[in-house]
């Protein structure tokens, strides 16, 4: 078994592997369509996802130069209007040059690693800021938990490694890189992560090792049940659409489950109701 020819690693696929190698195999290697509900109630989850995408669109429109008042007139959903108001009333202090919704890739261990940024704000030679708009509801994720997420590590690594686009074609000094998580439900409490050369080297080593481990595991794996190791069950399976395929009687999580565990470091907490992955692919 091998990775598909056009496969590129992302923070989401790496996180999937870390959470459950079997999930990685089913989703990215076998590309198994398994149409089970991930969370209940499905309509509520779906509405939340749609609202998250809508918010990303509004911010993108703003970055393109559309008048905020004109954008505001296009909003009919009350919660979305609240997020939009929060966004306008809590502006982040960011460098002038803005690159909304931009993908950046670099090579890593014989593969490509892709990051899809919501926004990169650049002051060449001084500061490169990644902004990630988070529309989770419920409690705000803890800093310790965010720091461990592969998104935080992958995004900063990719920008430091391949962000010359934002630095007038010159290599990026890792210490210029910053990542900000901005929470629509907690607009006054963004979470900031700096970066430095030591962290870059640490991430490079860890990510290369992880990719190497995945490559070796996939090469040795059989298909389906004879495949990569499964997560231990319980919480991880509870947020996984392949639970019934793996014969794990997890049942779909509820939206409340997801929200309630958002700052507890549970495997499903990074799920962000799927928005991370939707955004990475489509937006």
């Amino acid at each position: 078994m091998s990775l598909p020819a056009s496969f590129a690693f992302s923070q989401a696929s790496l996180q999937d592997y870390v959470d459950c190698p079997r999930r990685f195999q089913l989703r990215y290697v076998e590309r198994l369509a398994w149409p089970t509900p991930v969370a209940e109630p499905m309509l509520e989850v779906e509405a939340h996802l749609a609202r998250g995408l809508d918010f990303h669109r509004l911010v993108y429109q703003h970055a393109l130069g559309l008048d905020p008042a004109t954008i505001g007139e296009s909003i009919s959903d009350a919660k979305l209007a609240m997020w939009w108001e929060a966004y306008l009333s809590h502006p982040l202090e960011l460098p002038e040059r803005r690159f909304p919704e931009i993908g950046v890739s670099t090579s890593l261990g014989g593969h490509r690693l892709v990051a899809q940024f919501d926004l990169v704000a650049a002051a060449p030679g001084e500061r490169l800021v990644i902004v990630d708009w988070k529309t989770n509801e419920g409690r705000r994720p803890r800093r310790e938990w965010l720091a461990k997420r592969l998104q935080t590590r992958v995004y900063r690594y990719v920008l430091a490694q391949a962000g010359q686009r934002f630095n007038q074609g010159e290599p990026v000094d890792p210490s210029w890189v910053e990542m900000i998580y901005w929470f629509a439900a907690f607009p006054a409490q963004p979470e900031r992560f700096g970066y430095d050369p030591a962290e870059l080297e640490q991430d490079r080593g860890d990510l290369e090792a992880l990719v190497g481990e995945i490559e070796a595991a996939v090469a040795q794996a059989g298909s389906g049940a004879a495949g990569l190791a499964q997560a231990r069950g319980d919480a991880t399976c509870r947020y996984c659409r392949y639970a019934s395929y793996c014969e794990r009687e997890a049942g779909a999580a509820t939206a409340d489950d997801l929200e309630g565990q958002a700052d507890e470091g549970a495997p499903g907490a990074g799920f962000d109701l799927g928005l991370e992955q939707v955004a990475e692919v489509e937006f």
Partner: peptide, 18 residues
């Protein structure tokens, strides 16, 4: 567009914006 996609996902493609 597949030939372009294949290249962009290969090791030959330089790093940078997509």
């Amino acid at each position: 567009a597949e030939p372009y996609q294949r290249f962009l996902r290969s090791q030959d493609a330089p790093g940078g914006s997509e």
